[in-house]
Amino acid sequence: MIIKFILNKKEVSIDVDPMKRLLDILREDFGLTGTKESCGEGECGACTVLLDGKSVTSCLVNAVHIDGKEVMTSEGIAKEPIGKLLIDCFDEPNAVQCGFCFPGFLVTSYHYVKTDGEKNLDKIKKSLSGNICRCTGYQKIFESVMLACERKPLMNANERE
């Protein structure tokens, strides 16, 4: 099956088994290895990407589901102004440990900071509850996302979108 979709803001098309997982398409067909597989069953969030602006676990999404849609991975988000802001906020308190979970956290927290962005610990905890991290105990992740919420209003208006 030939599917067309927008990947990190570029139009792409690929001939692929309709049941192939989005996770494998990204990693194997497009070489985007930032998206990680940890559990393969939708439990950990390491494979999180944005599908039409919503965060989804790409290990549970098949090729057929992405035809005509827009996919953003951590690699794409890292180039966006809010993505860059978040990366700096994760880096500053040394929040990143092994880092295997972090592309997923980057995607989920990007979604939160972009669409909501309120500096509210309870809301942040809830929005990140689908992502598991075994190293950090989450505290520094919260701290980082809080920091990004605080700094977002300081960005140029066109960069906040």
Binding site: E75, I87, P103
Partner: peptide, 14 residues
Amino acid sequence: DAIPKLNGSWKFLD
């Protein structure tokens, strides 16, 4: 290694 881990360029085994 934090920034390359965040932007996906740091390589893990797979």
